[in-house]
């Protein structure tokens, strides 16, 4: 399919998403990407809408960025029928009280590939995904303390000597 078709499909998708999620920031770019920024509470609704109503069936990745005062969780999917890419993101912050970790609804039920992606984000950023079937650490060993990709992470392990002092 040509680039013009992909871009027109992307514009169509952007309009559909705007109609369904009026509070979201939606942009369609000239290279066939739809970018959606949504509130954390509507994360799962948006993912379900993208999969069921817009045909985004290919799971590319889910990851996060630590902006020190908040985290941005980013997901990227592609529609194999129209060739459009969609990037959906949301901001989460650490909550106070009984549940201090940032939390977001899991989209594993929408795309099964999200299972390990969310485990990785949980392991390296410490973001909880509620409703995840198997939220365990995946990269770091069992019993590891801390979340390495956070900007304020320091290694607290004492069982192995450091040859080079930590900077």
């Amino acid at each position: 399919m040509s680039m013009e078709e992909v871009v027109s499909h992307a514009k169509e998708t952007a309009e559909k998403v705007t109609a369904q999620f009026p509070e979201a920031e939606v942009t369609a770019s000239d290279d066939g990407w739809v970018k959606v920024k949504v509130q954390a509470g509507r994360w799962l609704d948006l993912a379900t809408f993208l999969k069921e109503s817009s045909g985004f069936d290919y799971m590319f990745y889910i990851t996060a960025v630590d902006w020190k005062d908040h985290f941005t969780v980013v997901g990227t999917v592609r529609s194999m029928t129209t060739g459009v890419w969609a990037e959906f993101r949301t901001d989460v912050t650490e909550q106070g009280g009984d549940h201090p970790w940032p939390a977001l609804a899991s989209v594993t039920g929408v795309w099964p590939g999200a299972n390990w992606m969310e485990r990785e984000v949980y392991d390296l950023f410490g973001i909880d995904f509620t409703g995840h079937p198997d939220l365990r650490r995946i990269m770091t060993p069992e019993g590891f303390v801390g979340h390495p990709l956070r900007k304020n992470f320091t290694d607290v392990r004492t069982d192995r000597p450091r040859l080079v002092p930590h900077r």
Binding site: D57, Y58, M59, F60, Y61, M80, W111, P112, G113
Partner: peptide, 10 residues
């Protein structure tokens, strides 16, 4: 194919 796409196979 649909399962592969959902898992992000490529």
């Amino acid at each position: 194919p649909d399962v592969g796409l959902g898992y992000g196979a490529s």
